[in-house]
Simulated assay, not measured.
Amino acid sequence: MEFSERLEALATKVQNQASAIGTEEATKNAFVMPFIASILGYDVFNPMEVIPEFTADVGVKRGEKVDYAIVRDGEVQILIECKTSQSTLKLENASQLFRYFGTTNARLAVLTNGVVWQFYTDLDAPNKMDSKPFLVLDLLDIDETLIPEIQKLSKESFDLDSIINAAEELKYVGAIRREIAAQFREPSDEWTKFFTTRVYEGSFTAKVREQFTELVHKASKQFLTEQVNDRLKTALGVGVTAPAPSDPVEEVSSQHAAEADLERDTEIETTLEELEGYQIVKAIGCSEIKPNRIVHRDQKSYFAILLDDNNRKPIARLHFNTKQKYLGLLDEDKKETRHPIDSLDEIYGHADAIRKAVQRYA
């Protein structure tokens, strides 16, 4: 499996299992160790590469531990602190990372609940861990632009200098993008005023602000939807070359075991065509609700697209396992009608029905 394929497989596992994981140890076993092994490529069974429960006594805090330390060339390079998958990541709950960062050679620290991965370094002051991450990876909503940066952390492609050099730009670009996303979801008065004063010549009164808050929100959603649709249409026009068969594996490591585990967990091979179809349905549906509420589950007989990861809220089904492909749409009584399609672009022709399905549940 290629790097991006392994990341997608783990994301599918997280999506399917996160709600069932209730403890920190279960989070480590189900999500964190597979990430270290299958995504980063370090052998979690080899203490020369991965040290669990890493201890480095600091001042009066004797015996305090960090969940994992990743070692390269005999030196600790990455520290990882874990929380349960159901918890919200708060830096005040990871004080060990702050203390250990200054007493080891590590330049990178990671705080994770197995779903969201926050990466830190020392941009603000040397040997002092920053209070804000320079990179945030959400496995339930992967930003594809971050994949090359994550790959630089892997054993095969580890490039610390490149990571640190790119960290400052990643930190601020990521923060700006998250702020833009927040404004798209719920425009602030400043955001509303910024656009209103450029299109409206009157005074920015309370009544005008109320009127344009909704207009700015609506325009933002439409713009975002158009951008997503344009990107998908462009992507669908690009041919995909099947990866060459990999060489036989002679040595068994945790990476190979983790990859096999991911394949067992997903059981069914999720195709690129199914994921592209899902993205089209998601792009259509996000005009009604937040995109992260639309998820997928690959079943044996069809590829399900659901609202809120709930089987009782099916938006659409993709039947792509036969020569003739079908888009399955369900009515209010959950009765499915299959519409034959010859290309993914034809899904756009059923946009109204998809939006109605989303509206019905939302």
Rank of each mutant, 00 (worst) to 15 (best):
N311S: 13
E64H: 10
Q151F: 03
R177Q: 15
N29C: 07
N16G: 00
N93Y: 10
N311R: 13
G328Y: 00
V216P: 07
K90N: 14
R209N: 12
F54S: 09
N113V: 02
A316M: 01
Q279F: 08
D73S: 14
T192E: 01
A18K: 14
D247Q: 13
R6K: 15
E24W: 02
V110G: 00
G102H: 03
N229A: 15
F3H: 13
P340W: 04
L215W: 06
D159R: 08
F98V: 14
L108A: 01
R99Q: 12
L318F: 03
Y100V: 09
E226P: 00
A167I: 04
L306T: 04
D138M: 08
M129A: 05
G22P: 00
E346P: 04
S154R: 09
Y278G: 09
L7E: 02
L160H: 05
K313I: 03
E263L: 14
R293K: 13
Y200F: 15
I142C: 07
R231N: 12
K323M: 01
G237F: 02
Q15T: 05
K233Y: 03
L318V: 08
L236Q: 11
T103W: 00
T337S: 12
P133W: 00
E251P: 07
Q15K: 11
F35E: 02
D333Q: 14
S343M: 00
N321E: 14
L224I: 09
A304C: 05
R317P: 10
G22Q: 11
H350Y: 11
T270P: 10
P314W: 02
R72H: 10
K193C: 07
H217L: 13
A316G: 08
Y348S: 05
L137A: 11
R62C: 03
V249P: 04
N113I: 03
S220T: 05
T23Y: 02
F195E: 07
A182D: 09
V208I: 15
